[in-house]
Design a protein around this nucleic acid. Structure first.
Length: 547
RNA sequence: GCGCCAGUAGCUCAGUUGGACAGAGCAUCAGCCUUCUAAGCUGAGGGCCACAGGUUCGAAUCCUGUCUGGCGUACCA
């Protein structure tokens, strides 16, 4: 809650103290409830400037504040200079009443003001199947997109891929080798740095079933056909897995289009015009030292092929030219070092790099009963994302991937994920939702009508009030999640909300309360349900009505 | 070596951008179902916030150094 009235009261008071700079004025919710509902440290911050003791300033300030005692119960100054504000119960009830009226639209914001956001995530090349690391990328990207949409941004979800180059040739060679092996030459050599996963054998098997030995000859043409088949197989699987995880993209952007459109050429040209390109050892170098960085980097290899930097820079220019106000890249921590290469180059070409935000996430480790499970693509002994989704379900996978801050390593506990019981945190939220649905169904069955404008002053218990206060925080939490691009703010909030609901449920009867109280409580439950539903929807997790 | 991220209860993690006695889940122990879903609730124990300095009214949070783990340090992407 923004508590606008408090800001106004204090702004007035500070003016009377001849303090004009209001930027220091901040409020926070104390973690100790004895310190009230809201507190400010403004007196401490003004101490130096006014050359007075903080507590004296605080006392002076609260003397001249004027406020409505129907809304504010008390404003007190306390050692060493905090000012604590306590609202009346009526104030919270009024705020709640207003918020509850939003119904199923509760929590929706318009801070985005239709600004255009491009969020690029997943972006796995079609050389293999997705694993848990991709899952974290996809879950974060999709959920951040949901949050921003919910906040009124116009969001485009983009997938950037490369279906040319070394990696793809490697895929083709790997499939080719397996297919020769399957055709009877068991000792046909497998490329040393090839893809060892079982899916390569599946692709080879498919080829033989469909085409027999048509591609047996080791020709460039056949290898190209095999490459195409492999690419399609991988892409189909990737998209199917994404869908299973509840993830979709609006735009699939092929790196190759940057070459055919001439954008990579334009980029090189522009960099040359800025005097940032020079030749050395047969390669073209980008002079990052001129841009304040430590080392220059190759941008076109001596073979004539560009390094990843060129298309990456061109791609970001492309996104900027498409008119997005905010461009978000969701990247694994292994890209941290190379990201500035793109940013600096974009700046050098006089584009606004502040529009680009890079969301890095740390790696995922998969553990089972304390033991780490390998999931590398190369070893072949990997746990694919698909297998995981099959085994524990999309809701659990998504929740586990979203419940940690992106800056921390995520430990995915397979044993806990498999647990279909109260130990599993995702069920806790869903259970609260299902419980409320059940109460609503019972009330309906008994023919009880719900009055959407009840008298909330019937709500008296501490459980009711605690639940109401947390409900009032929903919009702030969504806004915070949107500004920090962190999904765990939402999961944490919903967990806490669910806990407060369960406590309310245990201490306050709803259906057998008397008529007035029933109306107030059923509306409180209904509003909680709306938030749980919207929150879970933002997370891309189902909100079951029965469990 | 250098850069980035992390180090908080036995385990997994929060910690409101510097606030007032450091929180939650799991695990452990003790309670609560003839009443709207017990996938729930109540209570207990468990901490030198890696370590050492510094900045200030005030530090888990900011600065410096040390230690530990992860990632990176390409004419791979």
């Amino acid at each position: 809650m923004k508590h606008q009235i408090v800001i106004e009261i204090f702004s007035e008071g500070l003016k009377k103290l001849a303090v004009s700079d209001l930027s220091l004025l901040q409020f926070e919710t104390p973690n100790n409830p004895e310190h009230g509902d809201l507190s400010t440290n403004i007196a401490m911050k003004l101490a130096k400037q006014l050359k007075k003791k903080p507590l004296d300033i605080a006392n002076e300030l609260i003397q001249i504040l004027s406020f409505d005692s129907r809304q504010i119960h008390s404003i007190k100054a306390i050692n060493p200079g905090f000012i604590n504000i306590k609202f009346t119960k009526q104030y919270f009830l009024d705020c709640f009443k207003e918020l509850a009226q939003k119904g199923t639209e509760i929590g929706r914001l318009n801070i985005g003001k239709n600004k255009k956001v491009n969020i690029e995530f997943l972006s796995a090349n079609p050389t293999g199947l997705l694993h848990l690391g991709h899952g974290r990328n996809a879950a974060i990207g999709d959920t951040i997109a949901n949050i921003l949409q919910w906040c009124g941004y116009q969001v485009t979800r983009e997938y950037y891929f490369n279906n040319a180059g070394n990696q793809m040739n490697n895929l083709a060679k790997s499939i080719y080798a397996r297919h020769r092996q399957l055709l009877g030459e068991q000792d046909f050599p497998f490329p040393e740095d090839g893809y060892f996963g079982d899916y390569i054998k599946d692709i080879a098997q498919n080829i033989i079933e469909k085409h027999k030995d048509r591609f047996k000859e080791n020709t460039a043409e056949n290898l190209n056909e095999i490459r195409k088949i492999g690419e399609k197989y991988c892409f189909d699987k990737i998209i199917a897995t994404s869908k299973h995880l509840g993830v979709h993209h609006d735009v699939y952007f092929n790196e190759d289009s940057l070459y055919s459109s001439g954008e990579t050429q334009d980029t090189i040209k522009a960099l040359k015009e800025k005097g940032l390109i020079y030749e050395k050892d047969g390669a073209s170098w980008l002079s990052y030292t001129k841009l304040g960085m430590k080392e220059d980097r190759v941008i076109i290899k001596s073979s004539g092929e560009p390094t990843y930097r060129l298309p990456d820079i061109a791609y970001h220019l492309n996104k900027l030219k498409r008119g997005f106000d905010i461009i978000i890249d969701v990247l694994g921590s292994d890209h941290i070092a190379s990201a500035p290469d793109v940013i600096r180059a974009v700046e050098a070409l006089a584009y606004d790099s502040s529009k680009i935000k890079i969301l890095f996430y740390q790696f995922v480790t998969l553990t089972e009963a304390g033991e780490q499970v390998k999931m590398s693509k190369r070893s072949g002994k990997s746990y694919t994302l698909d297998e995981l989704l099959e085994e524990v379900g999309a809701d659990v996978v998504r929740f586990f991937l979203l419940m940690r801050a992106s800056t921390t390593h995520l430990e995915f506990d397979l044993a806990l994920a498999k647990e279909q019981s109260e130990k599993n945190p995702v069920f806790y939220l869903q259970y609260a939702h299902a419980r409320i649905c059940s109460i609503l169904a019972n009330a309906q069955e008994k023919g009880m009508e719900i009055d959407s404008k009840p008298d909330y002053s019937n709500l008296q218990t501490k459980e009711e009030l605690a639940l109401i206060k947390e409900i009032l925080n929903f919009e702030d939490k969504i806004e915070l999640a949107a500004s920090k691009l962190e999904t765990n703010i939402v999961t944490e909030y919903l967990r806490n909300l669910a806990a407060l609901f369960h406590q309310f449920y245990h201490n306050c009867r709803i259906i057998d309360a008397d008529a007035q109280l029933f109306q107030a409580r059923i509306n409180l439950a209904l509003t909680t349900k709306n938030i749980l539903f919207n929150g879970l929807k933002i997370l891309g997790i189902s909100a079951p009505e029965k469990m």
